[in-house]
Design a protein around this nucleic acid. Structure first.
Lengths: 313, 313
DNA sequence: ATGTAGCGTAGCTGTTGGAGTTTCATGGAG
DNA sequence: CTCCATGAAACTCCAACAGCTACGCTACAT
């Protein structure tokens, strides 16, 4: 059994059972792969793939088990390389951070600044995307750390850790009549056109749920992917905005007023996602600790080990 | 990176950093190993071993991490072979069960009989040993399943599951004066010479602790590794026996009387030990379920996954 | 000082992984 | 039904390399 052979079968599966494509993506020849697959199957004594004639048509029952274990082995092999390259290159390296707009724009700048100062030799890359994209990047190993408020709990292969809680706030242009009605209620809010986040972004699900619970259909005039766009349209008078309280800055956002809405919508928890079983380098831990001081190396290790038991904020 | 290279470095560590011995135990030549180690170190960019001149004198810091991951990879590779050989050979295979005398003699016979009937093609091997030996066999992968009452919780690499609780009983020759004193007390017991298990066997620690707690020094005249020996000497009138209640059978053990001692000594829990991260075959699960019906495949899988969270009887 | 255990180096060889080309099987379009 | 496109297997060939033997060198013990 060779690591190479395992790489081949995993890649064949990834390419939808097409050996030629697998060969291409691994920069080798199709016959070479065919041969190695055959050798592996002979050695293990089981057929990994189902064939009809010369086509691969499926993964056999034993093949499923074999592929699963093979993937684990390859992941560990990846870890081995990561771990030793960390030692080899000292503090230098590359860290890919995947985050949503909200996090990238409002929460991460300070963290990134401090991290870059602490680790000048680490190339920090930020990938911005939707929560689902973020989760998938982390699962695929394309990102080392993912940060988002939604969707991260859907993936069995992710370990997620709570970073911080936050609530929504309502923003209105100065002088808007709603500013008179204190305290703010959902019914009051529903009378106005609303501008808020797109589905599956930044706590949008909590907003929907709040209105659903009182049986009121909000008038969502416009949805956007980020608070900056929302703020722009609120300034233009198109409606009231509902955004993360993290995203409002009284200094900068002139002409706008924020009203706390913690009592209207459930609070949200920003979470950090790591791929289960991945080796974390010193600077991975450092970035996490910078972002969430309560997540010490020890706490993160526990979560990676335990898997099941959830760390509570 | 090749699996072979990982095997080499792990074996070097196992053989106390002696490359020549590692070569011998892997049936290959010393220069071959030296060369592969060097290649691996070059590829990873780190020195795995510390050398003084041409001697290997230690494992470097990165080497520790590398070796740890390498061991995981090799274990998974082992799992892959086990898994596919299970499919390849159908229901046949080999299962090594390590147990103490008490278990092998009194608890396992029924289980083994049923298992053999269920799986005529599986070669069942029993290794009898001390609890510590059992634990080490399982850790080393020499035994698939270990069963004992003591010591199993000392090993981080083992998953242990509770099988059943049992208590001790006192055995005496018929007509012995102690049979008059009901209920039995520790102080009463301490007046007679006692015959019981050797240290670290079958709940002996509980026996010691009970006497310690009341500050009485028991007169242990003889210790043995198993209940059969103890019973023999009790029959000869050398003293009173303290054995597992499992080991007494009123039918067979004529001339002896057992007195329940559940109120004198803490109860003991027989545990089953598996190596963390090992692939279990269908018949491994079957044997476990036969022995402990509450340990269904699902429960065992949970324990293997979770690791931390303990299943309670 | 000297012997020995034990690793590295050199050179050789058999094995094998992979490239290139050809052949064969399948399934879909006309 | 025929023909063609797709895609896997078969075969040959070659370069790379793992591993072996022989030998030299270093560290350490006596």
């Amino acid at each position: 059994m060779k690591l190479q052979q395992l790489r081949y079968i995993v890649e064949i599966q990834r390419q939808g059972l097409n050996v030629s494509e697998a060969a291409e993506s691994l920069y080798t020849s199709q016959p070479g792969i065919s041969k190695q697959v055959k050798l592996l199957e002979d050695e293990l004594g089981v057929a990994i793939f189902e064939r009809s004639g010369k086509r691969f048509t499926g993964v056999s029952e034993p093949g499923k088990v074999v592929l699963e274990i093979a993937e684990r082995i390859l992941r560990e092999a990846e870890n081995l390389k990561r771990a030793s390259s960390e030692f080899a290159t000292g503090s230098s390296g590359r860290l890919v951070l995947a985050a949503t707009h909200t996090q990238a724009r409002y929460a991460l700048p300070v963290v990134v600044r401090d991290f870059v100062a602490q680790h000048p030799d680490v190339k920090l890359e930020m990938h911005q995307g939707s929560p689902i994209q973020i989760a998938e990047w982390v699962v695929a190993g394309e990102a080392d750390i993912g940060i988002a408020t939604e969707s991260l709990d859907q993936y069995q292969q992710l370990i997620t850790l709570p970073i911080r809680q936050w609530t929504h706030c309502v923003i209105a242009p100065e002088g808007h009549p709603i500013l008179e009605s204190q305290p703010l209620s959902l019914n009051e809010l529903a009378k106005w056109p609303l501008i808020t986040y797109d589905t599956a972004f930044t706590g949008r699900s909590r907003i929907n749920r709040a209105f659903e619970r009182i049986g009121v259909q909000p008038n969502v005039a416009l949805t956007a992917l980020d608070a900056d766009v929302i703020k722009t349209y609120v300034s233009l008078g198109l409606g009231l905005g509902i955004i993360s309280a993290l995203a409002f800055d009284a200094q900068r956002d002139t002409g706008l007023v924020a009203i706390d809405a913690a009592h209207l919508f459930e609070s949200n928890t920003t979470r950090l996602a790591l791929r289960r079983g991945t080796y974390l380098r010193r600077y991975d831990y450092d970035l996490i600790s910078l972002f969430a001081p309560h997540l010490s190396k020890r706490v993160v290790e526990m979560a990676m080990q335990g898997g099941g038991d959830e760390y509570q904020l």
